[in-house]
Write a protein that binds this DNA or RNA. Structure first.
Length: 589
RNA sequence: GGUUCGGUAGCUCAGCUGGAUAGAGCGUCAUCCUUCUAAGAUGAGGGCCAUUGGUUCGAAUCCAAUCCGAAUCACCA
């Protein structure tokens, strides 16, 4: 099916035929041939030179000739440069590829679809979403789309961290400072409104600590005894006891936050199949602790707390239940893993969570495996790096965060300004314009966050706005729109006849043929940046092609037909690739 | 201190299962719109791939040590 696979297989076959030596096709290294050198694909011979005791020159000639015969019609020529065997692929092969490719079916669906859950977003209800959440959301969405593209059944879920001491901090600050104000009174989005009280809490807390320290207390003692901190802790206690007034306030403030989140999610795109709330799940996992004790996976200390000893696995001892019988973070995650697996019967569960929790997820998987939970082996932590500012980490407590809503709005605004100054869509209606600005602005933002390796932390400089040129979303959107503009003029009904291929036509065909491999690799490594890089390279190549060769006014009718088909395939591939990143591509911009 | 991850052009990043002269974008400089959308193309300039040693035909890539940075090692979530 795939040319590179065939080349590997043929290499192995021919070496076996020629020398009676058995090698695995996977051992064969096939690269794209360097542009300066004649050929399309290169087989690296060094590995076999030693094994077979032949000079690269001799081996290359014998192997080259044998493979030429073996892949007759596909390979037309070969040459040897040092230890590199370069093959030229026949124009006929690429022409057939172009002719047979179907824009509606660019990659084959897997014949072994899996049910995969992707959990991402995990917002806290004490503050609005920021740039870090955006990276999380876009990554989660994109990974889900990539897996879907392969033909898997994907379930997008979200766990909302809606309880805990941080929520109580916003609550108590509201009680103290708000005078009963609501988001409607201040004309604010609910999540921002509540977030402001979280910041107010910290300001008050700092002031109280400073005052206590000035009065002679140690820093540590002051931090414990600050009245507002004590208030938050008492409130958490009341919450856990189900105190009516506390629950009312908690529900009320969370409702404000959810209204705010809703607006944001709608804007950036969100389609969770299921949302879990931590207030419902935080007691989970207790029965599993009992089972673990019975299975002697866990052990109990004298004070009654329950632990697991992971020192044998190179980790530490970890508590799974407090002495008072309550769950800890890891306990509920064990329980939730079980619940999710049962509810959706998943084969795998991908958690999109920041790399600060690497240790937690290592422990989680290990514990689930030791408990022999069905979900255990399918747990996969998609760990991504923090988004940092040039000045360092973002801290919501100190207000040094890049707010998600602000950033999205800014991007949409910039796209509006640019579009207006270029003046190419004067016939658009107001609705169409609004949609276009959103598409471009969000495209720029999403692409910016997805184009780098998820594992790596990334730096965002708020002083420099996100670019619309070069390795960016709008560049690819523009290339797509440009192709569509041509196709509107030329029409898309075509008849392909035998035709020689110019280097750029061939290069485009080769690049297009790589799409399925790129998607598969991105899925295997859970890395959308592979797709981003690919779509960029494809767009760039098409633009060179476009600058060099005319489609509508091609030198012959044959050429015109061929190039229209290349345009159709490129547009479709760009569209699919960008969709896998959660980015739309406009027909016109 | 232990563990894990990172250090590649002025900046932001690819390349890392060892392969040919280390790539892209931005920024800088130069050229190209009476011809399919210039959000584009073409070219120039820019590098001791953190340092040192090792492995081998060959190292940005593998190994070791060192230096720098980050995360984590919570009865927080």
């Amino acid at each position: 099916m795939n040319l590179i696979t065939n080349l590997k297989q043929s290499t192995a076959n021919c070496i076996h035929q020629l020398y009676g030596v058995q090698i695995q096709p996977e051992q064969v290294l096939v690269n794209a041939t360097k542009p300066e050198i004649e050929g399309d694909y290169t087989i690296v011979l060094f590995a076999f030179v030693k094994q077979l005791g032949k000079s690269p020159e001799l081996l290359g000639n014998e192997l080259g000739a044998a493979m030429l015969a073996d892949m007759k019609g596909v390979l037309t020529d070969f040459n040897i440069v040092k230890g590199f065997l370069n093959f030229t692929i026949s124009n006929q092969f690429w022409f057939d590829y172009i002719k047979n490719a179907n824009a509606d079916n660019l990659l084959p669906k897997t014949n072994m679809p899996r049910k995969i859950m992707v959990e991402y977003s995990s917002p806290n209800t004490n503050k609005p979403l920021h740039l870090g959440h955006l990276r999380n959301n876009f990554l989660g969405w994109s990974i889900a789309e990539i897996l879907k593209l392969q033909g898997n059944d994907v379930v997008k879920t979200c766990i909302v961290n809606d309880r805990g001491i941080h929520i109580c901090k916003s609550m108590i600050a509201w009680q103290l400072f708000a005078n009963g104000a609501t988001p409607a009174d201040t004309n604010q989005k609910g999540d921002h409104f509540v977030g402001d009280y979280y910041v107010k809490f910290n300001d008050a807390y700092k002031a109280q600590v400073a005052e206590l320290v000035a009065g002679g207390k140690t820093q540590e003692l002051a931090e414990k005894e600050a009245p507002i901190q004590k208030g938050a802790q008492e409130m958490l206690l009341k919450w856990e006891q189900g105190d009516a007034a506390t629950m009312d306030l908690w529900k009320r403030m969370n409702t404000w936050v959810y209204e705010g989140f809703d607006t944001t999610y709608k804007k950036i795109g969100s389609d969770f199949v299921k949302t879990y709330y931590e207030s419902n799940t935080y007691l989970l996992g207790k029965e599993l602790v009992e089972q673990g004790l019975a299975k002697k996976v866990f052990y109990q200390k004298e004070d009654g707390s329950v632990w697991i000893d992971l020192t044998g696995d190179g980790l530490d001892e970890k508590i799974v239940r407090r002495k008072d019988g309550t769950s800890v973070y890891i306990t509920q995650d064990i329980g939730l893993a079980e619940v999710k697996q049962k509810e959706f019967n998943t084969d795998a569960s991908i958690y999109v969570v920041g790399d600060e929790q690497n240790y937690h997820f290592k422990v989680l998987k290990l514990i689930c495996q030791k408990l022999k939970l069905p979900a255990a082996d399918g747990i996969y932590h998609l760990s991504y790096g923090m988004v940092e500012l040039p000045t360092g980490k973002m801290k919501s407590r100190e207000g040094t965060v890049v707010d998600a809503d602000d950033l999205v709005d800014e991007m949409i605004n910039i796209s509006k300004e640019k579009t207006e100054s270029l003046g190419k869509v004067s016939e658009f209606t107001q609705d169409q314009l609004t949609e276009l600005y959103n598409t471009i602005g969000l495209g720029a933002l999403k692409f910016f966050l997805l184009r780098v390796d998820p594992k790596k932390k990334m730096i965002f400089n708020p002083e420099e706005s996100i670019d619309f040129h070069g390795f960016t979303g709008p560049f690819i959107q523009y290339t797509h729109a440009r192709i569509k503009s041509i196709l509107r003029k030329t029409g898309t009904s075509i008849q392909l006849t035998i035709s020689d291929l110019l280097p750029l036509e061939k290069a485009l065909a080769i690049e297009l043929s790589n799409f399925p491999a790129v998607i598969n690799e991105a899925a295997d490594t859970l890395d959308p940046s592979k797709v981003a890089i690919y779509t960029f390279n494809l767009a760039k190549l098409f633009n060179s092609f476009y600058a060099e060769l005319s489609i509508a006014n091609a030198e012959s009718e044959d050429k015109k037909q061929l190039r229209i088909q290349l345009g159709i395939l490129t547009a479709a591939t760009l569209q699919k690739g960008m969709r896998a990143l959660g980015i739309d591509v406009p027909e016109q911009m």
